[in-house]
């Protein structure tokens, strides 16, 4: 499925020819149950793709499968990163080749100091030379993300608040300079300040050298980080693609109209019976109290 160009899309259209990330008919199992039922998606450098979808629709599954988590088994389909077979690579090779995943729930590991870990990661990605400029770069990124130097002596994500964890993910992303960055609900669970810092951090990275896949189920992220393409993922399939107006439509009317449209076309969608899965529009009360709405700041 080729995404429709957005109104303010860059001149080039997302085409799978020589694309940075090309996903074709991807099927993914967890514990031999199919969760992703055939996804096509093409992401080029310089583009921002948003993936919207209710809880349990398979967004994280897609992200994990792309990053190479051993429990997420790709049963068929192809994925190319810069023309190379991504699926043949181990997770660390994927990382070193320029793929990055901002985890929805970053893992904490006791005993490993953040600073040492970042240095190892930089060395893995860019070789020994990167160590020389590491300090300087780190200081700069810490400043942008309003993170204290003392983070570096803390254990990896251990005892971090939700906001601190997400900032730490953005910090890693900023240092490792991926060519394709997948952000899995980096916006959820953040307070206003943390959210702005995270969004600014992402915007500072935006440019012709990196393509983003921003997974979210709120529109608020997309007000700060304007996507070029928007895809709706429901029941393990991308059911609709479009420009920023699609995100706006989902924000206003929820997923129900899309589901009805599909039903009329006779398309079958496997709806997950997740506790948190909401196919209706977000509760208006939540919107009214959404602190992000009351801020005029666009970040763009």
């Amino acid at each position: 499925m080729v995404a429709a160009p957005a109104t303010n899309a860059p001149i080039h259209q997302s085409s799978s020819d020589g694309a940075t990330l090309a996903i074709r008919d991807l099927h993914v199992n967890i514990d031999s149950r199919e969760i992703i039922h055939g996804i096509d998606l093409t992401v080029n450098k310089g583009e921002v793709h948003a993936i919207l979808g209710p809880n349990g629709s398979g967004k994280s599954t897609l992200a994990y499968a792309l990053m190479g988590h051993p429990r997420y088994a790709v049963t068929s389909g192809e994925v190319e990163l810069k023309g190379e077979d991504l699926l043949a690579m181990s997770a660390d090779e994927r990382s070193r080749n320029g793929l990055f995943l901002c985890f929805q729930y970053p893992t904490s590991i006791p005993g490993i100091q953040m600073g040492n870990f970042l240095r190892l990661a930089m060395k893995a990605r860019f070789g020994d030379a990167a160590i020389k400029t590491f300090r300087k770069e780190l200081t700069e990124k810490l400043r942008i993300l309003k993170m204290d130097e003392s983070y570096m002596r803390r254990y990896l994500n251990e005892g971090f608040s939700g906001g601190e964890k997400k900032k730490a993910e953005i910090l890693q992303m900023a240092l490792l300079k991926p060519e394709i960055a997948i952000m899995d609900e980096t916006d959820s669970g953040l307070d206003v300040d943390a959210f702005k810092v995270v969004a600014d951090g992402v915007n500072a990275m935006r440019g012709p050298d990196v393509g983003f896949v921003v997974i979210t189920h709120y529109n608020r992220m997309l007000e700060y980080i304007k996507p070029d393409f928007v895809h709706v993922l429901i029941g393990g399939k991308i059911v609709k693609s479009g420009g920023p107006e699609l995100a706006l439509a989902v924000d206003q009317h929820g997923y129900q109209p899309i589901l009805e449209e599909l039903r009329e076309q006779g398309v079958e969608i496997e709806l997950m019976e997740e506790a948190g899965a909401t196919y209706a529009r977000e509760e208006p009360t939540e919107r009214e109290h959404d602190p992000f709405r009351s801020h005029g700041l666009t970040g763009l």
Binding site: M67, G68, H69, P70, R71, S90, A91, D92, R94, S95, R96, F100, L101, F103, P106, T107, I109, P110, G111, I112, F117, L120, A121, A124, R125, Y155, L156, Q172, L176
Partner: peptide
């Protein structure tokens, strides 16, 4: 598995990642 995957997703080889986790464990 999650710790290992997290470190590997940042480019550390499996061996490096395990060594880091073990070193962290006896820290």
């Amino acid at each position: 598995e999650e710790e290992l995957f997290y470190l590997m997703s940042r480019g550390l080889s499996e061996r490096e990642a395990i060594t880091q986790i073990v070193n962290g464990f006896i820290e």
